[in-house]
Amino acid sequence: MRILCCVKRVPAPGAKINVTDDGLAVDASHLGFATSPHEECGVEEAVQITERHGGEVTVLTLGPPEAADQLRYAASVGAHHGVLVATDGSAWDPQRTAVALTDAIRGLEAADGPFDLLVFGNESADSGGFQVGVRVAYALGRPIVNGIKGIEVDADAGDGVVRARREIDGGFEVYELPMPAAVGVKEGINLPRYPTMRGRLASKKLEIAEQASDAEPGGQSLVRLHRPRETVTETVILGNSPEAASAVVDVLEELGVV
């Protein structure tokens, strides 16, 4: 199996997000950077698939030179190759990103043969455009389904089949994608492993293939980021002890949910 994972370097989620003074970026000074969570799970899934079926995982990112950190992180948890399409650090719109990634994948496939599976995150944690994976898969003629929280590879069925589960209320849908295929995965598909110390040290030696892109900007461009207006809620304290249960049930009755 040859698997390609696309990952994005994003300010680490988990805390209040501030914007830089010029409004053009997130102030990551308190946050640090991480791999967008869906994609971190994508790398884990790809590594697990190769652990079961053999093969290699290539991780591809588009971003500033520092995005090499995310490639190394992926290598530290088991990915084999890293490719960086370097930008100047400005936010690339989804169309431009998709073209650049498509070109990069075409180049990699021309050199070393096709990938059996392309793994994307469902959407990036920061800009959340919900489209890059779909655009790339379409351009490459690969079937893609988003929202995937379970993957089984059946290498024996025809040219190979990816059985993918998509979570819906109360259960899941099953898709069967003929390989070569693509998926957009979501956090929850697995609990990604942490790197080991040896993994981290080995990842320092990862040779990162750098590529440039001449993709043209698309139609969407960032004007400014800002925090939503915060609505101030007057919180009514129903009590400071379990005796407040009576008041709670009054509220529930009032709402008609009891």
């Binding site: 680490a12 988990g14 805390a15 209040k16 501030n18 000074s29 640090g32």
Partner: peptide, 17 residues
């Protein structure tokens, strides 16, 4: 430059590694 509790992923004095 130390984040507030709200701005910190872990705590203000547990800064990104």
């Amino acid at each position: 430059d130390i984040p507030s509790n709200e701005e910190a992923a872990l705590s203000p004095t547990e800064m990104p590694f």
